[in-house]
Design a protein around this nucleic acid. Structure first.
Length: 280
RNA sequence: GCGUCGAUGGUAGAGUGGUCAAAUACGACACGCUGUAAACGUGUUGCCUUCGGGCUUCGGGGGUUCGAAUCCCUCUCGACGCA
């Protein structure tokens, strides 16, 4: 089975740099796993690596979507899987690198999503209903799903109904055994060091023109709603807000990752991490 | 110096005699996650508890009252106004 390296972890732990270094060493190409870096125009705020930093290593799934449109996990999964194949067929090693746990799981856990594309019209209608009403609707359509869904989570309820309307019910979650051997490497930092790194990074974001980038995005007819959906940095950015928001995000990331027992964790503040991963 | 208003839990901010350990929001902590995932949702958030309850809180002190975060007096601090 072909090997695919996965580098994940909290934001600002140096995943990108490690991925590039590794790619150089083992003849790899990088597939980003970041739900916001897929969008064009969100560069500084999402911490995209610059062309220069890439050092000639091909990076995939960055800038593949228009921010006006919502990109989804399922799309990501398909694109990423194609890329993996493509890279392997060139005789190179794919390196998935990013901090969006859901995206990473979508690929590495072989989860199959029901093939029901989002139906914006239906969503709009359903969105006007209360969670209680939505729950009743779902219960009628699919008792099984209603039983284990969070009855207060509107987003989930709507999606479940959306699926059930097309397929008759929400299919039981299925996972096929993965086609590749995924080697998951997690980077973490002790909280004081993480805070430090985040502060540094945010400072740099402002220096690099974060505010200008936001202004530009606003001019491209992106709605306020859409902007805040894309992340707090693009909403009302003060230095303090961005820092605390980023730290909150880092916490949520860890919350997700820590459930995956197959991740091998390394303290990013210790150089040894790189040595070990390279020797694998 | 005089006058007015204000001082509430980590923060903002409701409450203005009992139903107040004190709304709500944010933060913090914990948790979940079937095509928005930096999204979305849930729980806890004074202390102790044998989970029945018990104890100490609303700037400090004193008082009125069966009963005070709420009323009165006084002190401290802050905002504004008049000098």
């Amino acid at each position: 089975m072909k090997k695919v390296i996965v580098i994940l972890g909290q934001t600002a732990t140096g995943k990108s740099a490690l991925a590039i270094k590794l790619a150089k060493k083992i003849n790899g190409e990088i597939i980003s796993a970041d739900s916001r870096q897929v969008y064009k125009g969100l560069d500084i705020g999402t911490g995209k690596v610059t062309k220069k930093e890439m050092k000639g290593i091909p990076h995939h799934l960055i800038d593949v979507a228009n921010p006006k449109r919502k990109f989804t996990v399922a799309e990501y999964k398909e694109l990423a899987e194609n890329k993996i194949e493509e890279i392997i067929s060139k005789g190179k090693t794919p390196i998935i690198c990013g901090g969006t746990g859901f995206y990473i799981d979508a690929i590495t856990k072989g989860v199959i999503f029901p093939e029901v594309p989002p139906n914006q019209k239906l969503r709009k209608i359903l969105n006007k209903k209360s969670t209680f009403q939505l729950f009743k609707i779902l219960e009628k359509l699919d008792k099984r799903r209603a039983k284990n869904i969070d009855p207060q989570n509107k987003v989930r309820l709507i999606r479940a109904i959306e699926i059930a309307k097309v397929l008759g019910r929400v299919p039981k979650i299925t996972a096929v055994s993965p086609l590749y051997k995924f080697i998951k490497i997690g980077l973490y930092l002790p909280s004081d060091k993480l805070k430090n790194k985040v502060e540094k990074r945010v400072k740099k974001m402002f220096q690099d023109g974060l505010l200008k980038e936001i202004k530009k995005l606003k001019q491209t007819r992106l709605s306020k709603n859409r902007l805040s959906e894309l992340g707090f940095e693009y909403n009302d950015p003060t230095y303090e807000k961005v820092v605390s928001g980023t730290l909150q995000y880092a916490k949520r990331q860890m919350q997700w990752f820590k459930r995956d027992k197959k991740i091998q964790w390394f303290d990013a503040s210790k150089k040894r991490a790189i040595v070990i991963t390279e020797s694998r």
